[in-house]
Amino acid sequence: MRSDAILNDAARGSSDPRQRRPIPAWVATTALLLPTYGWLTLAVLLPLLTMFVFSFMSATPMGKTPIVFTLKHYRAFIDQPYLINIAWTSLVIGFWTTLLCAVFGFLAAVALARATVGRMRETLLVLLLLPFWTNGLVRVFSWTMVLRENGFLDGVVDMVLPDIGSISFLYTRYAVVLGLVHGYLPYMILTCYIALSTIDDAIIEAAASLGARWWTILLRILLPLAAPGLISGAVLTFVPVIGSFMEPRILGGKVGVTMGTVIEDQFTQAFNWPLGAALSFTLLAVVLAIFATFSGVLRRGTTA
């Protein structure tokens, strides 16, 4: 055996041209990953870092003004109490949007999973998701067509009940919530549907065979089993909603002042970038806290 091995050792590296050593694995892996992560570093990670630094500056660095670092922008909530009201408005809007999306989205997912089959289900799913991947701005704009005075809604109401007058509620918080629900409902339907589609039909049949009525099945079986999808849908609705600014601007008018619009103002109107940065980071902290709280559910929900 030994002598064989030595002979073979001597014969190693023989003439077979295919015997070339492959490129070390880590070189190939790095080469594949570097462009993507380099790009993300340049476009996302470094900007977030820079903004973090900016949030400690006393004023937007313009010209030769010396840069002074301060914590004052993080005290904005204490120094400018109206910000607390605005933050509260954002949270309330976020809460109602998420709740309405959850209720209507879950029921839609149940209807999709239980009341449709085959091609009809596929078509419906695509139709339900399609708006989500179209321009959000245009969809918000669309609602102004419906909600404005003498708009589509008033037209319909006038046809049914001619004496009631205008029920237009454009430029109210209801309009903002309505527009946001319209924006994120498809996403909630998708996450709930993914969770529901993994449920074995036999479970429902078993429950029915044990005498469960449909509402019992809905509340005691489908709801708990779809909970991961419901929660990840809720998180992925709530987070962008509290950072939204165009929906409150367009549908809320004067009452549509939220954290999003305040931050936007700092960058586009007031040019107080450090304050905007500090507010952005406060918002980011809230977002990260939400993600951290639900990370377990999200991981299961998104890999389903």
Partner: peptide, 16 residues
């Protein structure tokens, strides 16, 4: 890029 509100990402890009 997917999960952080675009408002934050966008303003961060502007600053950087």
């Amino acid at each position: 890029p997917i999960a952080i509100p675009w408002l934050i990402t966008g303003t961060a890009m502007l600053v950087f």
